[in-house]
Write a protein that binds this DNA or RNA. Structure first.
Lengths: 183, 183
DNA sequence: GCCAAACCTTGATTCAAATCAAGAATTACA
DNA sequence: TGTAATTCTTGATTTGAATCAAGGTTTGGC
């Protein structure tokens, strides 16, 4: 599953993929409600979702602020904590039973040093992620809830199959009631 | 100015800096209101601001959506267009007379191929930018305008000296009237 | 230094989304 | 499969930011 995805990356030779796969050492199975990481912990892993669905959010006194979802064939991590190796402000919680593969930061850093192609790969992933966040920034600024919904429907229609609407509402910065009324 | 900044990057040897600096070939001076790039053009440069101030925004039928500012010692570009080499959706406009240095995408890509340390440097810059955008994503979701203002004041107080409040209001997804009332 | 343009402030009013509330539907899992 | 917990929907009401409006201030450019 991860293997077939990596084989589709033009950058990688079969040898690269062979060197990479064994680094995804840990296999996690988490139940609905379980946490991959909680506020205060330092993120050590990058996760690949094989099945299930998860949410990434910032807990605040008032309410959780949902900043992302993960589902099969996507990566997830508490990125700021992973990069800076400081305690995470964010939590990652399973929305249903999920299966994940994990690579440690250490191993990931090492292979980037050893094989420049992985440095390039990661740079391209970061560029894609940044482009995504810039679009998201625009989405969040749209004053009309219906427009925000429309853009998410266009960009990630599958999310609506995978994630309870109340979390999507939070992600779209509206109440579940408002989302229900405009869907 | 750019030189002294680059010399402070621990990654770089003096030789790296010497190889890099000449690639910032073009020097632009733009007047208040001028555009570095307009919607539809394909971004070819990464810009370094020596003086002045600029805004990066998405023009829409209703209103401009402000997604960022640049000021001395910062980089700016229409990132999605630069990365994907497709027509830009965004505009970059000078808010006052500004002086910039520019490096072409071609030269920037080349030096990353030639000297791996520049690949690593860019990767780290992208990581920082992504962390920033994740924080910004949280900022934008805060329902209370005063909270959004507070977080910007904490993170980038200097912006209020450099940029007319009406653009800051847009960046904070509120009207100039609301910003005026809570400042 | 002067003038026009741009920007900011303050007040009155409107309106759309949040809140509050309660019942219906769906989902988890024992 | 049955039952409790969770999630979703719909309606009534409130509220706070947007809008509209007008006067004051700052800024840019000649």
């Amino acid at each position: 599953m991860l293997a077939s995805l990596l084989n589709q990356v033009p950058l990688f030779t079969p040898d690269d993929v062979e060197a990479f796969l064994p680094l995804w050492k840990k296999r996690y199975t988490v139940n609905r409600g379980d946490f991959l990481i909680r506020e205060g912990q330092v993120e050590q892993h990058l996760y690949f979702v094989e099945s299930g669905a998860l949410r990434l959010y910032l807990p605040t006194p008032d309410e959780d602020i949902c900043v992302g979802f993960a589902y099969p064939n996507t990566l997830i991590t508490s990125f700021p904590s992973l990069v800076t190796q400081t305690p995470s402000l964010y939590c990652i919680q399973a929305l249903r039973r999920s299966e994940l593969l994990a690579i440690s930061k250490t191993d990931f850093d090492l292979i980037q040093e050893k094989r420049p192609v992985f440095g390039k790969f990661w740079r391209m992933e970061l560029e894609k992620a940044l482009v995504g966040k810039i679009e998201r920034e625009v989405d969040l600024q749209l004053p009309d809830p219906a427009q925000r919904l429309e853009r998410l429907l266009r960009r990630s229609p599958h999310i609506f199959q995978l994630v309870p609407k109340k979390y999507i509402a939070s992600y779209l910065r509206m109440t579940p009631e408002t989302l229900s009324r405009i869907m």
